[in-house]
Nucleic acid binder design. Structure first.
Lengths: 356, 356
DNA sequence: GAATCACTCCAAAGCGCTTTGGATATGGCA
DNA sequence: TGCCATATCCAAAGCGCTTTGGAGTGATTC
């Protein structure tokens, strides 16, 4: 025993595999495997001996081998489309991943990231499927009529979409914020404050979320008999500079907008900069209402929120999406799940009655 | 042939494995494998037949099986420490990953993410090693005297640190910005503009980068005979609200600082808000100089930078780190590589001569 | 006392790939 | 013609794990 111990002690920082562990225990690999994986056909005293030894020798099953044998990868893939024209990294991504990561960690799953140039998308998903590195994937950044959904359904890889895709009629699993409802409500809030010229600084409108937000914005205008003025609408990547430029231009007009609805707090910060620069006062002269993903490094103030905002935690969405996917993988024949999150309307210090 | 074709056509959306491919070709698995992997002992006409068939049948080698057979995982791990007290997601992370992802994609590597609660770090790295899911890892967020470096060296898992660790005397591979030099230069720049009371809004100073930045800041002050005033120094997580609060407090004093040095553009935005709110004018009354990671969604203006900044692209660092690690994996016995990036000092519209 | 059963355990096959150690055929050379 | 490289291909072992299909004990039942 002590000789064996010494032999195995040497391996301490090395990797011990199942065979070595079973030799050390004078048991078959079968029994050891079963003991470790909680199968019933093993004596409880044997099991605890095995568990103890596994602990002592610092045994960890090799993921690849386990995956090969079981057919499961114990990993989830996140596929992030990167377009060549817009090579911005979605700032929301980190928080989403953090949320999802928690869920994976609890379930013993790994998280795999793949960046996919958008012209290679179809091939990329087939690759992922065939190479078998993951048991399911989270689809990021769905666009209108997103072809990935049909593709993934066809090749039979479980997936959950973060967002939805207008015009896709297949059933599929998703988790999304009620973007349309939120923006309708937010715009209505501004209208009720007396604003008549409300600008929309939206994200790229081939993205589904942005499309829905515009619909919500337009619905509110229509409901109150206000005109839909394309001159007050922008659709770009949601950077700070974009907000600044767009607001600066609009505020230099003869007839200025009195309020801005932004798709991102970062864009809203740019708008605020333009407002200051124009010598105007936020909330008094011009109001801002923005969507707020509740990013951890961009908290919308503390006690009193900086911006009046439609808030929905993307980190929470990440956790929920991950758990949804895990349960889908556990019950493959289950019908798709969906989850619609409502954004809170938070009143902050960036809105006020329309300037007369 | 057409019968076979039909048989395999059915598999089109399915997964074809090596065995099926070799049956289809009437060749042995050995030959097919060698043809695909570019070994010389196979006839060129055979090889092209194989390549063609692989293309037609949409063959992709199973990653797990390949990994098991070769002992390589063809994947890189990114280990992100998540502390319980500070559960902020580093906003820099997305861009770094995007940069690294490109390099991995080119090399055919996968990217694996692991979130590790910081009290479990040691165990986590051993896990990763033993489970064999990755060939190497990128270490994020090094602190002063980071114990992970010794651990990883000991267990023999190739790694590259994004950043460095003061007080660690082992040789190891890293890529870092010259934080100390940059902040010394930046602070000196402000001093030369006549500023005497310069505040430092730093990140958490157990983090190595923040520690070095403070050293640089202090060095510049000392070099010019200025006092180091702890009342002008803060160390927290680099949020917007942090910048706002700290600046608000300092600007409400009898004797205000005339300039702020920030560790993050996000914090700088908070400082700017406080300045506005105090009725002061940026650059005229109070100056801001900030580090700028050149995040894609937080461009520091366009033609004229918003903030005077020490700029260093974290995305570029990601690409470089990844390539460094890949080459380390390719040549395991190679000495550690290091790379020190210099930050550019960019003059923007947030600095001016000290108010008299 | 034989048959049955529950309880433990094990040998071996198999997951999909790579790679070692030949086998076979072909051509050049003496 | 016979011999030996050379070129081309293959069978089978092995990577580390799970899982199927028993085998070997005692204890229980008739």
């Amino acid at each position: 025993m002590s000789k064996l111990m010494r032999k195995f002690k040497a391996l301490w920082t090395e990797t011990v595999n199942l065979k070595q562990l079973s030799e050390y225990l004078n048991l078959s690999q079968t029994t050891v495997s079963r003991a470790l994986n909680g199968y019933p056909e093993v004596n409880e005293t044997t099991r605890s001996r095995v568990l103890k030894a596994a602990q002592d020798l610092n045994y960890r099953p090799n993921t690849r081998a386990k995956g090969l044998a079981t057919g499961r990868a114990l990993a989830i893939g996140h596929v992030i489309p990167v377009s060549n024209q817009h090579e911005m990294v979605n700032p929301v991504f980190g928080d989403f991943i953090a949320g999802a990561g928690e869920a994976y960690a609890r379930a013993g799953y790994d998280m795999m990231l793949t960046l996919v140039p958008d012209q290679e998308e179809v091939r990329a998903y087939q690759d992922i499927r065939a190479r078998g590195t993951v048991d399911g994937i989270i689809v990021h950044g769905p666009v209108i009529n997103d072809e990935r959904i049909a593709l993934l359904s066809r090749i039979g890889l479980p997936f959950v979409v973060h967002g939805r895709s207008t015009d896709v009629n297949l059933p599929y699993s998703w988790i999304d914020v009620n973007n349309r409802g939120a923006f309708e409500r937010g715009t209505q809030f501004l209208i009720e404050l007396g604003h008549q010229r409300i600008a929309l600084l939206n994200g790229l409108e081939h993205m589904d979320f942005a499309f829905r937000r515009r619909k919500g914005y337009e619905t509110a205008l229509l409901n109150h008999g206000l005109p839909i003025d394309p001159g007050l609408m922008r659709s770009e990547e949601m950077t700070e500079v974009y907000g600044y430029r767009a607001a600066k231009e609009m505020l230099s007009r003869e007839i200025k907008p009195t309020a801005f609805v932004c798709s991102s707090i970062i864009t809203a910060i740019g708008v605020r900069r333009a407002i200051h620069e124009a010598g105007l006062v936020l909330a008094r002269d011009v109001s801002i209402l923005t969507h707020d993903d509740a990013l951890s490094y961009l908290e919308n103030g503390d006690d009193v929120p900086i911006f009046t905002a439609l808030r929905s935690s993307v980190r929470y969405a990440g956790t929920e999406a991950a758990e949804m996917l895990l349960s889908l993988i556990a019950m493959p024949k289950h019908a798709p799940k969906t989850r619609l999150l409502e954004a809170e309307l938070i009143i902050g210090r960036s809105t006020g009655p329309a300037a007369s």
